[in-house]
Amino acid sequence: MLLIPCPWCGARNEDEFLNGGEADKRRPANPVQAGSEEWYRYLYTPANTKGWLRERWWHVRGCRRWFKVDRNTHTHEIKQVEEADQWR
């Protein structure tokens, strides 16, 4: 069970959230010209890191806002990396 630090609501139970996967993934800059290799890399090759991973989470059963946290996928430690102020 994770206590996920929402920048707005504080630490809340994981079943209020949805995992949005790896953060900071970039779509191919030019989607029309990007070939199958580039789309393959974007769509199908997640880092799937064992250890610290920056992720997006959605507080869907709370304030309904998106934010990022660092989660250790092996030990389930979790760190807040965004402040609510950043978004104002």
Binding site: M1, L2, E14, D15, N19, K50, T73, H74, H76
Partner: peptide, 13 residues
């Protein structure tokens, strides 16, 4: 479980 993990344990819900 609802998110990827290597922790070899699941969530109680």
């Amino acid at each position: 479980d609802p998110y990827p993990s290597y922790a070899q344990r699941g969530s109680p819900q």
